[in-house]
Nucleic acid binder design. Structure first.
Lengths: 172, 172
DNA sequence: GACCCATCATTGACGTGTCAATCACGCGAG
DNA sequence: CTCGCGTGATTGACACGTCAATGATGGGTC
């Protein structure tokens, strides 16, 4: 099953293996399919898009159920303009409300409406059930452990910690 | 580290574990970040979006470098209308061309322009290098093996094979 | 040949995301 | 006080994806 076996010694490990590429593509495809499936189920059961859900989740967990817009954007790692557009759409649907901020006249405070809170509450149980059915039930405990390990390695590779020793990634 | 330990015996394994949920979210976040990073690098180096790349890749691998539109859509698993819109944009940029099909007057045949072929060729090496740097270099061979195994399990769970025994998923 | 219907491909409407520009306000320096 | 600049948030233009509707052709049936 080996592909692209190297001949050069030092030149080894320079190129992406065919197997690695296949795993990469499979990772993209599979996670995308899961994302779409769960998003579609959420939408069907709750009339909420995954983006709506993320916003409502953050708001619901906020103290007093209200947040500054920028705070909210940071908490879910969205660009401000994206959040602004999306809040506009959610406001039209009556899920959230935006009021002027009392302590900073530039700011706006986002809060859940009763409808939004109700819809969010109604959506969580089915959504968690769907995640369990389509993801949780697919893997063994050992596979979960391995996956957590892999994801940690990927994240560490993307965001190398300043304190940690970069191991074999020094520049000579 | 156990969370939500069950008390009911049979009711166990009904709900999603907090750990499983965390891994799920991490999977979404991490793959999304990788997707965006590699997409941005591709765009910067080659002026091609990931979608452009997918189309050009399929066309480039086709016999005679031309394909029927519907064939192309199936080969990359896109909806037809999505492909139609995207081909329109790619045609405007001079990457591909659409001609009437000789054997079926309904159809259209998509082919690479010289520019499109050139841009695709120029993009592959940097793109593969980026995948290697951001993904390939992050994991050990054991982790790749484990990941391939996990992805296969997920895919099998999503598309159960008719022939295979569903194991513990029978309905009594 | 006329008819019916499936298929090929496109289109329009709309929701969504990104980028760059804009506007309003806060706030410190002079 | 006012000038200047950084920040909070919004907006507009555009790329992208989905869904439903459309137009055009193929191909079988009577």
């Amino acid at each position: 099953m080996r592909v692209g076996e190297e001949t050069a010694g030092v030149a080894a490990r320079q190129r992406l293996t065919a197997g690695e590429l296949a795993i990469w593509r499979s990772l993209l495809d599979t996670t995308d399919e899961l994302r779409k499936l769960l998003g579609a189920q959420l939408l069907q059961e709750s009339k909420l898009s995954p983006a709506d859900y993320q916003v409502l989740l953050a708001l619901n967990e906020a103290d007093s159920r209200r947040m500054r817009s920028s705070e909210l954007a940071e908490s879910i790692d969205w660009e401000r303009s994206r959040l602004s557009h999306h809040l506009g759409r959610m406001e039209r649907r009556g899920l959230i409300r935006r009021d002027d901020c009392a302590t900073d006249n530039r700011g706006s405070e986002v809060s859940l409406t009763d409808d939004g809170a109700r819809m969010f509450r109604a959506s969580t149980a089915p959504h968690l059930r769907a995640i369990k059915q389509n993801f949780g039930d697919a893997l063994t405990p050992e596979q979960f452990e391995a996956l957590a390990d892999i994801l940690q390695a990927l994240r560490r590779h993307l965001h190398p910690e300043p304190g940690a020793a970069p191991a074999e990634e020094r520049r000579p």
